[in-house]
Design a binder for these strands. Structure first.
Length: 482
DNA sequence: AAAAAAC
């Protein structure tokens, strides 16, 4: 089977050939002919199966007839995250290089002006995250009555993120005569219901290939102490131990605050690291991802915003700094490596107390993951000696910041051994970009809370009802308060 | 328990 047999237009075909592809993936072979015919498609596939091209290519072919009118986009593609939306735009640019199409990307965190201009000019392709799309719609900058092709990508993730009501709303604004292409990695009951609602006599194309069975990925568990400094030290040791084998790595944390902390720590230890999480300013997000893709950064510390769908062909390692508490996240995370036929390694740091999460992961993927060192039984013992191997520190201090304080005050150079093992060119502009990273929301929130409660405490009782002065009736008083 | 997404 070749791309030439799928019914794509010559313009599209030549762009595909130029990109170096000749053989379609199963999802592409299954979906493209039907999509070109104008049929609805239900695609069940993980990312990394060539899913994006399976809707981009037929859409380009179909878009060759007709042109866009102002404020009336001809197609709409919904994506759950900003990065995925941007990635789809890249695909339209790459495969649409022989076309003259107006592409508009509507995502949050960036200015409205440019997006409005593109809508005004008439968009052939509109790629959006739900929030910003509805925002434009409510401002009257957009009519969806001209949409001929509607794509819902990563539907199960949209469900996880609570986007379904938004999607239902958007769906009602699009003519029912449209063609709908619907993609999801899994088919939970809610999603099945949605497909019955949105799709008409769809062609079902299923590519069952969960990332966990990807034989290109070598999975290993890594024993670690549970204290933050101990985990960071173990991580550095792990990275250095991989030496040249580690070309680049995505390091996943469970919390945005942990991403920020770990990123700063790695940067101080002269690692070539970047960070990515949802509370960062959008420009920094784009820059980090871009530099990681281009190889200017070898480590990317990320939250689960990067777990699904991100297509970076050449990631040698995925490291779960925190074990994912949802087993499917594990599958998605490690699926960022071992892509496009390459081999990849996936390490998961396991500390005392992570056993139950490990259990559900192994249950889901249907196999036991090998330990790099030791095993679950040695974990407990290991954690007893969890004292920080340095003296002269204030006991009972916050171990979280100690680790960074050391290097900040001393600014020591990396040791000879680490110099050999760690990626060089450490004087990255990304370290300077550290300042651009916003504080995680929770930190901001607690800061606000602290200052609020302080000012409130000056005035009067926190929970006292307003308007009674000191004569609060008994029944209005908060129980337990004097 | 947390992440993502709108000003």
């Amino acid at each position: 089977m070749t791309f030439a047999e799928l019914g794509l237009s010559p313009k599209v075909l030549s762009a595909v050939t130029d990109a170096g592809y000749t053989t379609p993936t199963p999802i592409q072979a299954g979906a493209i002919p039907h999509a070109i015919e104008g049929k609805d498609v239900l695609g069940i596939a993980q990312t990394g199966t060539g899913k994006t091209a399976s809707f981009v290519l037929p859409m380009l072919t179909r878009l060759e007839r007709g042109r866009a009118r102002a404020r009336m986009p001809r197609t709409l593609i919904l994506e759950p995250t900003r990065e995925l939306a941007a990635q789809v735009e890249e695909n339209f640019i790459k495969y649409g290089k022989n076309h003259r199409l107006n592409i508009a990307l509507l995502i949050g965190g960036v200015s409205f002006d440019e997006q409005e201009k593109k809508l005004e000019r008439g968009a052939d392709v509109l790629i959006a995250t739900p929030g910003r799309l509805l925002d434009h719609f409510e401002r009257g900058k957009l009519l969806l009555t001209g949409v001929d092709i509607f794509v819902i990508d990563e539907a199960d993730r949209m469900l996880d993120m609570g986007f379904i009501p938004d999607i239902e709303r958007i769906c009602k604004l699009i003519p029912f005569t449209r063609q709908t292409l619907f993609f999801s990695a899994t088919m939970p009951p809610e999603i099945t219901k949605l497909t019955q609602q949105f799709l008409q006599a769809p062609v079902r194309v299923e590519v069952a290939k969960p990332a966990s069975t990807n034989i290109n990925i070598t999975q290993k568990l890594v024993k670690t102490g549970s204290k933050p400094w101990a985990k960071r030290a173990r991580l550095r040791e792990l990275i250095r131990g991989e030496g040249d084998q580690l070309k680049n790595a995505i390091i996943f944390c469970n919390r945005k605050s942990e991403v920020a902390t770990l990123f700063r720590s790695l940067a101080r230890h002269e690692f070539d690291a970047g960070a990515l999480h949802g509370d960062m300013d959008q420009r920094a997000r784009m820059m980090m991802l871009d530099n990681f893709r281009k190889g200017k950064l070898s480590l990317l510390v990320a939250s689960d915003v990067a777990a699904r769908g991100l297509d970076i062909p050449d990631v040698s390692h995925v490291i779960n700094y925190d074990i994912p508490t949802h087993a499917d996240d594990y599958v998605h995370r490690i699926g960022r490596t071992g892509r496009a036929g390459r081999s990849g390694k996936a390490f998961t740091l396991v500390a005392k107390g992570d056993a139950k999460y490990l259990d559900s992961i192994e249950k889901l993927i249907g196999e036991d993951v090998e330990w790099l060192d030791g095993d679950l039984s040695t974990l407990e013992a290991e954690d007893q000696g969890d004292e920080k191997p340095q003296r002269g520190k204030k006991a009972g201090g916050k171990s979280t910041s100690e680790d960074s304080r050391n290097t900040r005050t001393r600014k020591r150079k990396p040791s000879a051994s680490s110099e050999a093992d760690t990626p060089q060119e450490a004087k990255t502009p990304e370290v300077a970009a550290e300042e651009k990273i916003e504080k995680p929301r929770e930190e901001r929130k607690s800061a606000i809370k602290a200052s609020n409660s302080k000012s409130r405490a000056r005035n009067r009782d926190d929970d006292a009802p307003i308007g009674f002065g000191d004569n609060i009736p008994d029944f209005m008083k908060v129980p337990g308060k004097v």
